[in-house]
Simulated scan of single mutants.
Amino acid sequence: MAAPPMFFLLATLAVGAGLGMLIAQNPVSSALWLVLNLFCIAGLYLTLNASFIGVIQILIYAGAIMVLFLFVIMLLNLSALPELEQIDWARVGAFMVGLVLLSQLLYVVALEFSLGVEPVAAMEAADAGSAATLGKLLFTRYALHVEVAGILLLAATVGAVLLAQRRFE
């Protein structure tokens, strides 16, 4: 079975791409690191038998949202931003050690309260991740959440257009 090794490989690549996105000096290369991260996350969904969500991850996030990000980067004229200071690797290391300690603490707490995740059969996961099941949930149980997310995205788009328009005047 190749799913667990592929899952951990894609998870490691996703973390590495996330770090590359944070460390990159150029905003366009940072956006490209984010595209790699989004593709790795889509691969993680595919290894978990959630094929619909994996394909939507590629189409929506790695496609449409990243094009929007690149347009915003081009509109904002990021060459006028001040230079960032050098990375303090001691702080980065301390942050990573803190994350490791926090994950160990959460693992111990999860074991103490029996909060472990139980594995799901492949057929159940494929059925729960199908387009019909997700559509039914989105339009019934989570309809308000989807509408609020749409309103927030609309407000963010209007704000970005107003900010870009102010810079060109």
Rank of each mutant, 00 (worst) to 15 (best):
P82A: 04
P82W: 01
E85I: 03
V97S: 15
F113Q: 14
A110V: 06
R91L: 12
P119Y: 00
L81R: 13
E112W: 08
A90T: 13
I87K: 02
A80E: 11
Y107P: 00
I87Y: 00
R91T: 05
G98H: 04
E118R: 09
L84S: 09
V109C: 05
V109H: 10
A94R: 13
W89A: 03
L78D: 02
A110G: 04
V117T: 15
M123L: 08
W89S: 04
A125I: 00
R91P: 00
A122S: 14
S103I: 11
F113W: 10
V117Q: 11
L115D: 02
E112A: 14
R91Q: 14
G116Q: 15
A122V: 15
E85N: 10
M123Y: 11
L102F: 12
A80P: 02
W89D: 02
Q86P: 06
L101G: 05
L78Y: 12
L105C: 12
P82E: 00
V108C: 07
N77Q: 13
P82D: 02
V108A: 15
L76A: 03
D88E: 12
S103H: 10
E83R: 12
G98F: 02
F95V: 08
A80F: 03
A80W: 02
L76T: 01
L101S: 04
V108S: 14
A110E: 06
A90D: 15
R91D: 06
L106V: 12
E85H: 04
L101I: 11
P119M: 08
S114I: 07
W89G: 03
L76F: 07
P119C: 11
L76K: 00
R91M: 09
L115G: 11
A110I: 07
V108H: 13
L115E: 03
V108E: 13
L84D: 07
G116C: 05
L101C: 14
V97R: 05
L111D: 05
E118W: 04
L99N: 10
P119R: 06
A90Y: 08
N77G: 10
A110P: 00
L111Q: 08
P82I: 01
L75P: 01
L78E: 07
E85F: 04
E83G: 04
E124W: 04
A121W: 08
W89F: 09
L84T: 08
V109G: 07
A125F: 02
M96E: 08
V117M: 06
L105S: 05
A122N: 07
L106R: 06
P119F: 06
L99K: 07
E112T: 06
V109L: 15
P119N: 05
V92Q: 01
L115C: 10
R91S: 07
L99D: 05
